[in-house]
Every structure is written in C-alpha cells, then in structure tokens.
Design a protein around this nucleic acid. Structure first.
Lengths: 203, 203, 203, 203
DNA sequence: AATGAATGAGAGTTCATTCAT
DNA sequence: TATGAATGAACTCTCATTCAT
C-alpha cells in the first residue's frame, strides 16, 4: 500500500518550507550527524513528531535540502555563455557566486559540510551532472584560449579557483569576521576579485 | 590540587599518538559532534575505555588535536619575511600552504570543520593570535605596496585569497577528484597558482 | 530563556508521582550514589528514557524528593506552641515524630542518608531554615524553664534527643526487628517515650 | 589449589591497616555502593591493583571493616554487669557508647549505613549474636526491675534508646554542627544524658 | 610487592523514531 | 494535522577487576 500522494495542501507547503528553513539553519552549522531533530524542531517552532509527519526522517529532510540546493547551485556556472566575451562572462560568474555567498551563506556551508565529509550523499551528482557541466564549460574556455581571447591556463583550476575564492567568504565567515574585526567582507572582496580575475585573464 | 603529571612512558607516548591519529581521521570527516568514540576506538584498534584512560574525554582529544594543529598551522604565514622580495615571499607562502594541503589534508579539514561551525573552540585564538599575526603581515604588505614593489590591493583579501585557494584543495578534495576524474590536483594547481599570483602582484 | 512550563497533564502528574514513589524506595535504601536509574525504572515499571522524559536527570529526582520532604519534615516542630503547656507540647511533638517514623519511614531514611553523607545537598537548609526554627523553639523552652514550668536542661540537646529517639525507629528498623523478633516496635515505644519524657521534664 | 596462607609479613600487616583506614573513611561517607575503589586508593595513597593484591575485592574490604567493627561494637553492652548497681551500670554503658561516638564516628556511620540499607551483610549477626546479647541483658534488667532496683520499663526500648541517643551524635554530626553552630556537642551531651537516664531509672 | 595498561559490564543521558490520541 | 508520551539504540563515561611486567 503506497502513500496516497495527494496534492499537498497550502498548509503542507508552508510547513515543509518552515521545516526546511529551520533544518538549513541547523544542518549548515553542525553537519548531518551533529544536527538533531530537537534543534530543528525548536528552530521551526514545531513538535518533533509533527516534523516527522512532513518528512520521513532526519535523512529525508537533509536530502530535500541538498536536492533543493542543487536546483540553483549550478545555475551561475550554467549561465556562462560560450558566445559571450570571456572576461565579462567569467567576471559575471564570479560576481554571481559572490552574490550567492552573500545571500545564501547557509546553503554554501551545507554544501561544504557535505563535501568535507566525502560527499556521501552527493557523490553521484558530483561525478554526473556537475562533472558534465564543468567539462562542458572547460571546453568553452579552451575555445576562448584557442581563439586567443584570454590567457592560457588550465580551465579546471580556473573554475576551482572561482569556487574557492567565492565560497570561502561564506564558509569561513566566522574566521574572516574575527580577523577583520568587522562585517561586510564580501563587499570589500568584490573589487579585489575583479582586479584578480582581470589580471589573470588578460593576454 | 593538580594531577601528578608524571613523565609519560613509551607506551603512553605511542598510544596517545595512535589515538590522535585515529581521532584526526574521524573528527576531520564528521566534525566534533558527528564523530563518536566508537569510531575513534575502532580506528585506533583500542577499546573505548582504554582511550579514556589516555584522554579525559572526547572533548580533550579534540582539544589536543586543535592545539597540536595550531602549533604549525600559522607557521607558513609567520615565515613571510618583510625584508624579502614581495613576489617570492608571497609565492613562497602560497607554495607552503599548498604543501600543507597536500601533506596534511585532514588537519585542514579539521580546521575547516571548526570554522564552519562558528569556531566555538577556536574563536579566542582567531581573534587573538591569528588576528595579530595577520595584522602584522598586512602592515608588511602595505609597506611593499607603498614602496611600489607590488600592485595596489587590499592586503587582507590577498591573504584570504591565499587561504581560500590553497585550502580548497584539501577541504573540497572529494569534489575535485570527482570533477577531474583523477588524483594529483595539487601538482596541477601549482603552476596555475604561480601564474595567478605573479599576474596579480605585478605592477 | 526558561522552559515554557505548561500546566502538567493528568498523565504527567500521575507519572511524576509514580517515579517519585519508586525513587523514594530506592534512594532511601541505597543513598544517592548507590541508587541507579535502572532500579528506579524497574520499581516504577517504566523505561529509563521515559523517566528522563519527566525529570531532567537522576539528581533532579533526588532534589524533588528532598524538596518535597522538607515541606513537611519540620512541621511537627513548628507546631510546638509557646502558649501551651510544656509537657503536653513536648510530648505532642514526640508523638508526631513517632507517627512520622511509623507512616513515613522511607522519608526518614532518605533524610538520614543525606545527613550521613555530610548533607552535601541540604547543608544550606540545615544552617538556614532548620537552625532558625530550632533557635526559636530553644528560646521557647528556655522561657518555660525560666518560668519554672519544667526541669532545667539544655534545650538543644532536648530537641536532639527527640530526633534521635524517634527517627531511630525508622532508620534502624531492620536492626530493631532483628533484635525484637517481631514488628510493631513503634507501638511499644510510645508508652516508653511518654514515661521517659514525663520523668525528664518533671520539676 | 588453595591460597598458601602464609603468615603475613610486617608490610602486609601495615598495608592492610592503611587500606582499611582509607576504606573506613570512604565507606562511612558514601555507603557500600556509593564508594569507589578509586576513592579508597587515593585515600590510601596506593594504586588500585595494589589494593586488590591485599584484598579480594571491594566487598572483601567492606566485609573486613564490618568484621573488625563487630569485634568491639558490642563490647560496651557486654560490659554491663548483672552484679553491679543498675544506675551506674546503665550510665556507664551510656558513657562508653558516647565515648565511641566521639572517638569512632566513622565506625558508627559505617554501621548506620549498613543498617539503613536493610543490613544485607550483617543481618545474620543481628539476628544471632546481637539478639542473643540483647536478650541476655534484657533479662538482667528485668531482674533489676523485679528486685525493685530501678523503675519499671520495657528493657528492649531502654537499650534502643541508648543506641539512638548516643549514636545520633556520630551519625547526624553534620546536622548537629549546623544547628549548634559549633563543635563539641558530645561534651555538652554528657550531662544531659546523665540527667535523662538518672530520672528515667529512678524508682 | 607494586603498578601501568587494559577491559567488560554497566551507569546516566541523548536521540531518532513510533505510539496513541 | 498535531502533539504528549514512550522507547530501543547508541553515546559518553565510570568502575571493579584483570593482565603483564
């Protein structure tokens, strides 16, 4: 006897959203194993059994978060246009990633936690969808290089460097704030990034 | 009334080392709360109570790891010499950090886990020792810039970019291997890093 | 941020009562450290985690018992009336204490255990509330003595002797039964006590 | 193969004494189950295994203490002489018991702990040796009463009252000190006891 | 005679999940 | 749809005892 799978009511939709929001807060800080349903329930202002009414279990909530994350996580890279100008395309990508670190730092940390732990749940996506996308964009960049439109370099590590530099501001936020002694690091980082990539790409 | 603190025997030294090695493996993957003494005991091939014979508790093991880590973690930055040539000093720093990511990836992930969780145990060190060291080196870099020896830029973010770029290869190792389809990313990264920072620093 | 502290349900009230009853049985026999949650759980016919659903921990149960005990433990002494006749007031106190030893022997043993161990949890109450009450009643007795209404004696040790003689029948119950070879020692003790204190107080 | 049972060396004798002294300290405070070998070892300034070299186990130490205690515990009562004068015999007994509470309070508390827990280890002694001794002395007292040498009363409860009054000063010491605000309660108690029993026994 | 090292059993407690309503 | 009540499994840690020297 399978679940009925009726169309979710308005209340269902809202509560699933509330739970995911709370779970994001908790999972992004403590990782999957370190987070507890109690914390999520408290954050969501719901009872624990009620949370399990909306999701099969702790893992299902985490999976839902990762799935939801993946829907948008790769968008900034997807938008990189082979027909566009290399410098503006790549700088645009950097900017979009920095925006994500500013607007969705918890999502970035959720992702970082998953990767740090060896990507037990996301490895298939990394080896499949992500690798395919990266391979495609690497080909694009190789084309730009071959056409003499940008400096020669290893496109894989160019992409890695964009990931590293931008996500760092979300993932290592607490360290950065401790060192700087103030907030707003990302705003300061933007011109630095622009200079860095401008110089890196210049022929 | 403190513990007697007798000189540790050879067995004590060896077993404490074995435990720390096992704990590093486990904590670096799952974070403090996600790791269990069972996992550490299994990894160390010891009984759980025997582990607690050598360390006061789970937290004490973790603390010992962090303390040990801090002894060397800042060394690469400390070595940056104000009297040296900016380019070779900074490239040297990058190289040393890349070496650490290659040789001590678990230490890097242990650190990343701590920071991701908001640095509950290391915040005082970040705000104290680390901030002081960074401030000092920022002054050095400002001196180089003022002397016209390197391009103008925000020295804080220069340092952050080095941390981000080098540690990424340890912390996001599983993602990098999935995308590349092969090992040895750090070896490939070295020339990329050299080019990147050479271009960034050039006047 | 305190707990919400909702009004306890009927089940909560009943189960907390069941647990305290079971805990009294166990703590009064083995003392705080000697008692185990397993014993309490068995006695209460509940699972261990369910007990911890109603109380924060082992210590909280013990504290609740001591607190509940204190609410009534000092009542017999409080009732001693300065306006009354010394002999009937003091004999009345003795009778009330004997009644307590008959009706609440486990409470008496719980108290004895706490005192035997140096009153680690109740010392403040002993030095505060209890001392104040005793001091007050000592003044009353001194008044009676000064008024020539009873024999001269140290009122503190008069009170101690009442405590000792009455609580002994609860605390050393197993010894008394072993020596007598039968139950009902307290009933036998009553006339003995009456004679003892009558002769002691007489001018 | 039985133990050799050689004659104990001087060092054995001394160490067994040290251990028993330490164990008395610990058992008298925390009871059998509440006490730990670690505490005893610390108190004895010996290693735990060394303690178990001299005694079969925790229970054996406790048994040895109880056995040693019994050798002298009943002496004060035994000394009560049928040929003597009732008043001086009984007052003498009271005095000897008070002396024991002053000089051996830990032994008294050890005994109290055992009885409080239902005398799991000493019940046979209570029902055997102790009951026999008490029965014998009860007969003596009955003789005195029959001979008109002292007031009529239940001799069992007379003996219980002596136990209760005298041991109270050792067992409830912490409470007494809290109420009095000073030490030396037993010295104060002596004249009180003398008056009490003098009046009680008088024809 | 003595002790550092080691462990199985069990302690108090947490937690994801289920039950009952 | 919601939640108090309940629990088995697992977690950290303690303790009496044993092992090895």
């Amino acid at each position: 006897m399978d679940k009925p799978l009726k169309k979710p009511s308005r209340i269902q939709i809202r509560n699933r959203k509330v739970i995911l929001e709370a779970a994001l807060e908790v999972f992004s800080r403590y990782g999957f194993r370190g987070a507890t349903l109690d914390q999520i329930a408290e954050q969501a202002a719901m009872s624990k059994p009620n949370i399990l009414y909306y999701f099969e279990g702790k893992e299902a909530i985490h999976d839902a978060l990762l799935t939801r994350l993946l829907e948008t996580w790769l968008d900034p890279l997807r938008e990189m246009d082979a027909q566009g100008d290399p410098k503006s395309e790549i700088l645009g990508y950097v900017r979009r990633k920095l925006d994500m670190s500013r607007d969705f730092p918890r999502e970035s940390r959720l992702f970082a936690n998953e990767i740090l732990q060896g990507a037990p749940r996301m490895m298939p996506v990394l080896e499949g969808e992500l690798k395919a996308l990266v391979d495609e964009k690497v080909a694009v960049i190789r084309g730009w290089i071959a056409a003499g439109k940008m400096a020669e370099m290893d496109p894989y590590h160019l992409i890695f460097s964009i990931w590293a530099l931008t996500q760092h501001y979300a993932d290592f936020d607490s360290q950065i704030r401790a060192v700087l002694g103030h907030d707003g690091a990302i705003a300061e980082a933007e011109p630095f990034m622009e200079a860095l990539f401008t110089r890196l790409l210049a022929r």
